[in-house]
Write a protein that binds this DNA or RNA. Structure first.
Lengths: 242, 242
DNA sequence: GGTTGACTTATTGCATACAATAGCTAAGCA
DNA sequence: TGCTTAGCTATTGTATGCAATAAGTCAACC
């Protein structure tokens, strides 16, 4: 998952201007601040599972580890807390978020509904080029499902879903959908249980794509909702907190 | 709008344990931190319209105004930026968020869908006591609509919607709905255009309540979606940014 | 045996000083 | 006149030190 997409402010992320003129002024060095760097790094480690839910995040220790003072560390931790990836309990140290089973189920329900909403809106609003792009990604996934490469499949799968978010033409909803996806990411299994899941996933996607191409809002929403419900099996859903 | 509800971390706000045992250990002084205080204060001023969209938020000036150092001010501003209430442009000062017309429309669409989702879930899941509570609030609104007190009506109206959020039994979705409501709040007109709107609003609520009581998920969702679309007229929807 | 209380200490909150960056202005040049 | 560039300055970013709070511990008491 691309963590640059992590929406913290009003994420220019998904709704990026998309100005792809070649004669742009300059690539711009993109001066990144240290706090920002820490935030991205920590978020990445959490989402990738290197920092498991419940893992302690000591300000002083992190400051030492990255050779910075506590100030930018605090800032990064606050941002992460705001985005829900960590829990900051005063005077007892912050830890990687460890939602209750109930809450995790709630997040999945939200994800299903948000993705369904995006798919439905996309069916009505996607521009021709966007539709073409979605089909291209879909085709790429078909080939990857045959090749049996879960890692790469997962990557392209995210592009698939991002394309549908963007197709909703509603940046605000797209951000919520992406943020939710990021937040459940730490609970994803390291590997799919079986490779057959890839083919199944592609088949489910197919129903979504067909409905979108047909401009069938309800159909697209239902297909996507069903897909997310099934995807849920790829996640470790168990009580991680007390 | 109660700003204590503003969800920044994983808002214990809406999903508050609801432990209302009388013999609770102690009311707990609720030690509030300075940064938190600033955040609430500034958010309040923004939502109430005292700080209009586009108004500058100078770190140093705010620090002077509240007699604190820049550190807690920075923290508060970051939090507000994360929740989307302000825009923090580096080296040009932060300003109260000034979404484009397009984005504002997107937020309203999101609000309609989120509230509709909550109403639908509430229809299926509300406990008996919750249903009773909702009806009580609804009745209170009926009386207030006759009394013609827009201020008070507005207050109770928020309790009405919060009750439906809670009825969804999904804290995560409830938080998104509330956060969205807060974010469009600054664009609400100071007064309803006419008092007749209160009676109309109550009539729309009535359709929602009836559907919820009947356990009619689709009906409740549709009624709520329609209500939010109409409520939209109470907001100043115009391009506030360039 | 369980509860209450003070004490200790880890951890966070805040203030201040300084460094660094980017926006801005104006001068110089084509 | 329009563009580039250099320097200034407002503003933000970071480091460090100290203050303050609450968590945890242990002992005394009921």
């Amino acid at each position: 998952m691309r963590l640059d997409d992590l929406p913290t402010t009003q994420g220019a992320a998904v709704a990026e201007p998309a100005v792809s003129r070649v004669d742009r002024p300059a690539p711009r060095p993109v001066r990144i601040t240290r706090a920002e760097e820490l935030r991205l790094q920590l978020a990445d480690e959490i989402v990738r599972g290197q920092l498991a839910p419940g893992a302690p995040l000591d300000e002083t220790e992190i400051a030492r580890r990255f050779s910075v003072s506590r100030t930018p560390v605090r800032e990064a931790l606050r941002q992460l807390a705001a985005s829900g990836l960590i829990e900051a309990r005063a005077h007892r140290g912050a830890v990687v978020a460890r939602p209750t089973l109930e809450r995790l189920n709630g997040m999945f329900e939200a994800m299903a509904e948000l993705e369904a909403l995006c798919a439905g809106l996309a069916a009505e609003r996607m521009a021709a080029t966007e539709r073409a792009g979605l089909e291209a990604i879909h085709e790429e996934l078909r080939m990857l499902s045959h090749a049996g490469n879960p890692e790469r499949f997962h990557e392209v799968n995210e592009r698939f879903h991002n394309a549908i978010y963007a197709g909703s033409q509603n940046g605000y909803i797209a951000e919520m959908a992406l943020a939710t996806r990021v937040r459940v990411q730490p609970f994803r299994r390291a590997q799919f249980r079986n490779l057959g899941r890839l083919a199944k996933s592609h088949a489910e996607h197919d129903r979504v794509v067909v409905a979108i191409m047909r401009g069938d809002r309800t159909g697209a929403a239902n297909a996507m909702r069903a897909h997310i419900e099934l995807v849920r099996g790829e996640y470790e859903i168990y009580a991680v907190s007390v």
